[in-house]
Design a protein around this nucleic acid. Structure first.
Lengths: 297, 297
DNA sequence: ACTTATGATAAGTTTTTCTTACCATCAAAC
DNA sequence: GTTTGATGGTAAGAAAAACTTATCATAAGT
């Protein structure tokens, strides 16, 4: 038979000792003195030994003296835990990991993260980037709490919350014949040296699908792709967010017909709720991107 | 505001997880299922975050998964403490120190202790021996829990529980003229070479008091005293318990007139209660010595 | 479709905890 | 020496908490 030591009576014992009496302790605890007497007597009954001497003064027995620091220790452990768990629930502490596609990582996350950490100083964020399949995999396996990417088709295991549309356009060097245009139709790309990349599958199922067959070159790595474009070896299609602004010689021209876009949104496991920290990030992202509409300049 | 996490609802959470559901857990805990539902819901309210998913299955949320091992840890600490304190109260564990005079240490304690440790296998005993003043000092200062000695006069700080009378007699070598006697009167010691020792003050206030003035020699150390007696350099007075039986050539002769004795008993601090272990020892000693009457053979 | 699980909810009961009111004891103050 | 103001303990009833019974809605198994 193991006695259930409730935390409250232990606190009463500490208070009586610390304040030197039942009355003083009762004032401190906002309880009446008999409440303490009875609770402590109850505790003594459970333990099978008196904690306080019978006399008029509130003096500990040797057994009580032995118990006191142990009570204090248990209470401290309790309070520490309670505080920690409450802090997590209140988003004042915690940890979250998210997986995002590179375009989001480089164009969206810097500003988002800096605002997030200043709003939630206690939360630690882990950011992992990779292509859409990587993001999907990480979310499904539970390696990360949430993902930021686009999803093709519906997924049984995932829940997708759309955030914004990212229009696909053509990227070429500034001396290319099409470079000065603000928009164009897919037919105008006939005969161009078109380079495929990881986002090319966005064209599948659109009027521009036949462009996919024109690929002489397929480059998945973004650095290689841009270097190739800068070298003037061809053009490619990219969502606007994935267009690397930092290259002066590259131009982005909207694809007006057909209008092709990917839908970027939050990805999470279906049927699972989020950790408080991940929920905070989710709410924060929806609030940030939802309010400002299109997130890019 | 720090939330008070009661131990019982934490146990409920563990049971639900361990048994894979509220119903299974309720059977295990001998509670009804709504009791668990409500208690856990209450706990979730305190923490400010759900522990279980809302769906039909009893699945932990990520927050719940985070909490679970911490709940388990707190409960383990609680149980360990509860068990330990109860074991002490039940005298199944603990520690006690006692101070005794050398005669008690060598003649009484060996048997007493061996019986005590077999009766209370969990209790550790520390035995410290010294003269009556040492015992008194150790008890008053709280260095030891109890003392076994005789007390002269009443002491404000000490409580004395008499156990038995220890008669004073004369000790001499087997070739001494008095050696064959079974009892004698103090006058018969006139002219003898009387050696004083730590117990000589027992004669104070008795008819034999004048013997104290006859001391040519005073030897406090027992080994030295016996060596001197064995050397035939004189006689001394000792309580029977202090008479060292292991010396073949020494004889103990009762002092019939006046009959002088010391009262040996338990000494403890007045107004303080004993630790469970010390109480066990006290009870044991009273039971052992009280029943058998005179403890010596 | 029917049965049998699951957990949630509502109302009422039991148990626990606390307060009010009072008592006994002790110590310092008048 | 009595009085006063502390101390803590006790008893009865009120308030709060925990639990049970009864019932429901929903999902999964047959």
């Amino acid at each position: 038979m193991i006695a259930e030591l409730k935390i409250t009576p232990l606190r009463y014992v500490l208070a009586v000792v610390d304040h030197g009496g039942f009355h003083a302790a009762s004032r401190y605890l906002h309880r009446t003195q008999p409440a303490l007497s009875m609770a402590i007597r109850e505790l003594e009954g459970r333990l099978g030994e008196a904690l306080f001497e019978k006399g008029t003064k509130a003096t500990l027995t040797p057994y009580g003296s032995y118990c006191l620091p142990r009570f204090r220790e248990l209470i401290n452990q309790h309070d520490r835990l309670s505080r920690e768990l409450q802090a997590r629930a209140a988003r004042e502490a915690g940890q979250l990991d998210m997986a995002v596609v590179p375009s989001v990582a480089s164009r969206l996350m810097p500003k988002l993260l800096s605002e997030f950490v200043s709003r939630y100083p206690g939360i630690k964020v882990g950011l992992h980037d990779g292509n859409a399949d990587f993001v999907r995999e990480q979310v499904i396996s539970g390696q990360v709490d949430i993902g930021l990417s686009s999803l093709w088709g519906s997924d049984e295991e995932l829940q997708f919350q759309p955030l914004f549309h990212d229009e696909v356009g053509v990227v070429c060097r500034d001396d290319h014949p099409l470079a000065g245009r603000t928009s164009l139709m897919w037919q105008e790309l006939q005969g161009e040296s078109l380079i495929g990349n990881g986002t090319s599958r966005l064209l599948q199922g659109t009027a521009a699908e036949s462009l996919l067959e024109m690929h002489d070159l397929y480059i998945s790595n973004m650095i290689s792709l841009t270097a190739t474009l800068v070298a003037g070896m061809g053009v490619t299609t990219l969502p606007r967010l994935a267009f690397p602004q930092e290259y002066e010689r590259l131009r982005f021209i909207e694809l007006a017909d057909p209008s092709v876009s990917r839908e970027v949104g939050l990805i999470r496991r279906k049927g699972y709720s989020l950790s408080p920290a991940a929920q905070a990030m989710t709410d924060f992202i929806i609030e940030s991107l939802g309010a400002s509409g299109i997130p890019l300049q």
